[in-house]
Design a protein around this nucleic acid. Structure first.
Length: 587
RNA sequence: GCGCCGGUGGUCUAGUGGUAGGACAUGAGCUUCCCAAGCUCAUAGCGCGGGUUCAAUUCCCGCCCGGCGCACCA
């Protein structure tokens, strides 16, 4: 059972309603998946657990932004340039190469991505570029443009191009000017979002691991890089498995088993914010059911980092020997806010008040325009600006009787008395700063997939093979199955009453009275239902039911009156099944 | 996007130039009653399009989808 867990999970997911490829009736489309009844609930439980940990427990606020955004947003974010790859295919061996990279290697052009495709094609011919793989001439081969964002038109006509967001983050960044108001202009603050993101992947693979539409759970934590420090002490004892870039480069690179605190001290984790979220993320993954023996944090290699990331560690999990990314924990510095500030009409800064107002001397000018105008005509305005700049940089220039400034290469001389030069004391109470961003970015579908795969078990009960999911009760789609032992003598009616009562107490309940009891247990085992309640003759006579635990298949009797409370305790971890097996009065 | 392999009920599969059989699952009934038991019956399938042929699920071509490898993964 150690092999092909992936295949078995996909089969189980299809059969039992966790997830399956969408649009099957129309032949299916690669890279799109639908979560079925079990999967949608599991996914939503994972999202709620994330929301609890990364929004509620951290004191951050959640927003919900549109998935379609106008083109200028992505000009600013760098996504329009960053993902627009140019590929050229070798006519001989069929291998694809990055055309811009080939041109960069052959010329002194550093950023060939910015060069139009037609020119790149010309350059390939001009420099007689050949396929790096087999040496065939590439001249005349078409250069293709790969656009990883889904494009659309907003409104009638095509006047306003838009894109489906390739990450939920931009929906947070673009609203920063307003979000900072809600945070009362105080750093640090964090904004979370759980939502869909879209990437038109060239080749979707591996079931729901690489898809074209997926759910992200992201936190953008805005901080003052000079003052704010993470509460590292809360996570310093968290044990982590690290795979630093330095080890990945070695032949036999090793993991570093350490704690968050030690890793920071030893300089393995250089960014304390990233370290902090590593320490938050690990117990969270454990909580929702990721196997910690198949989990690690891997540092991005320098060439691997996204265009915005200063440092980045991925949370990764392993299935069938393959490691894949579950989350990226990135320090994005002020990249995004600066870019949006530059490209948009708004300020993406925040006014930071000094502890004490500073009194500074400032040289100012107040040029006499009634003199400058007649004297210098059209140049007067620019001369006034030049005087202001000069005053800021070199106040001694105003010591003499005249001041000379240069405008467009010509020198102009202005009598000092006409400049309105003065040195004043100004009180500055603060400054505008661009916050830095720490971004834990989680792929929700990948967590769901991992949780199912890591929970997948096969064992034998009474000589019969059994498949079950050892899901944590917090994320299991159904908490309890309720069955009548037989559909007669009023047991079914009683079981229905009990099911309704448990639902009123907020439990996810499935009722089932079909076929034999064992079959019903197995059905629930396969979707990971942790507990099953069976109504039998004793229920009718004495008011007790059996509660059966999924992993051990052990049973114990519980009073119907205490059932809802017991099950709620089992679900939220306040009580264990062993305690039910050995009641408190045994002492 | 390229190359190789594949696509048969819900799932897993057998098979064929004369339109298909099994297992499991599902539903109804009988029986049994705390771990996928048994019996009877029922529902349900050849990815899509074109070609060859009297006849195509089968052979050929194209497309779609899946697996693996390459490339890509901002």
């Amino acid at each position: 059972m150690t092999e092909d867990i992936g295949e078995r999970v996909v089969e189980l997911a299809k059969r039992r309603g966790f997830f399956f490829q969408s649009n099957g009736a129309y032949g299916g489309v690669s890279g799109f998946y639908t979560y079925g009844p079990q999967g949608a609930t599991l996914k939503s439980n994972v999202e709620n657990a994330w929301r609890d940990r990364f929004a509620v427990q951290e004191g951050h606020q959640e927003i919900d932004a549109p998935t379609v955004m106008p083109e200028p947003v992505f000009e600013a974010s760098g996504h329009l340039d960053g993902f627009d790859d140019m590929l050229v295919e070798c006519p001989e061996c069929g291998e694809s190469h990055r055309a811009d990279h080939l041109v960069e290697d052959a010329t002194d052009i550093e950023d060939a991505e910015a060069v139009p495709i037609s020119e790149v094609e010309e350059m390939i011919a001009e420099h007689d570029l050949v396929c790096p793989n087999c040496g065939t001439e590439l001249a005349g081969e078409p250069v293709q443009d790969f656009n990883l964002m889904f494009e659309t038109n907003i409104g009638p006509g095509s006047s306003q191009p838009g894109y489906l967001r390739p990450e939920t983050a931009q929906g947070i960044f673009v609203e920063f000017p307003r979000l900072k108001e809600y945070a009362r202009n105080q750093l640090p603050f964090g904004v979370t979002q759980i939502g869909k993101a879209y990437r038109n992947e060239i080749s979707p693979r591996n079931s729901i691991i690489r898809v074209r539409e997926f759910t992200q759970a992201e936190l953008e934590h805005f901080i003052d890089p000079e003052e704010d420090e993470p509460p590292l002490e809360r996570v310093e004892d968290v044990e982590v498995t690290l795979y630093p870039a330095s080890e990945q480069n070695k032949e036999n690179g090793d993991y570093v088993e350490t704690t968050v605190g030690d890793a920071v001290e030893d300089g393995i984790l250089t960014n304390e914010w990233v370290a902090y979220y590593l320490g938050v993320a690990k117990p969270w993954y454990e909580r929702v059911g990721v196997d910690m023996d198949r989990f690690r944090f891997r540092q991005h290699l320098p060439g691997e980092r996204a265009h915005y990331a200063a440092d980045c560690w991925d949370a990764e999990s392993e299935i069938d020997g393959d490691w894949f990314e579950l989350a990226g924990l990135a320090y994005r510095s002020d990249y995004d806010l600066s870019k949006h500030g530059e490209y948009s009409d708004e300020e993406f800064t925040l006014f930071k008040q000094y502890d004490e107002p500073k009194t500074v001397e400032r040289a100012t000018v107040d040029p006499d325009m009634s003199y400058l105008g007649p004297e210098f005509g059209g140049q007067a305005g620019e001369i006034a600006d030049a005087l202001e700049t000069k005053a800021e940089r070199d106040r001694t220039a105003f010591d003499g009787d005249t001041v000379s400034v240069e405008v467009d290469g010509d020198e102009y001389v202005v009598p000092a008395e006409r400049t309105g030069f003065a040195v004043e004391e100004v009180t500055e109470s603060g400054e505008h700063i661009t916050p830095h961003v720490v971004e834990p970015s989680f792929g929700v579908g990948r967590v769901v997939y991992t949780v199912i795969a890591h929970a997948y078990r096969e064992d034998e009960v009474d000589g019969e093979e059994r498949t079950y999911l050892e899901l944590d009760a917090e994320v299991a789609p159904t908490t309890v199955g309720v069955f009548p032992l037989m559909d007669k003598d009023g047991m079914a009616e009683r079981a229905r009453e009990i099911a309704a009562e448990l639902r009123e107490n907020g439990l996810d309940v499935t009722y089932d009275d079909s076929g034999a009891i064992g079959r019903r247990y197995r059905r629930q085992d396969e979707v990971g239902t942790p507990f099953c309640v069976t109504v039998d003759y004793e229920t009718l006579e004495e008011g007790t039911v059996t509660v059966r635990e999924r992993d051990t298949t052990e049973q114990t009797r519980v009073d119907v009156d205490e059932l809802a409370e017991s099950l709620a305790g089992l679900r939220n971890g306040g009580r264990t099944f062993d305690e039910l097996l050995a009641p408190a009065d045994a002492e």
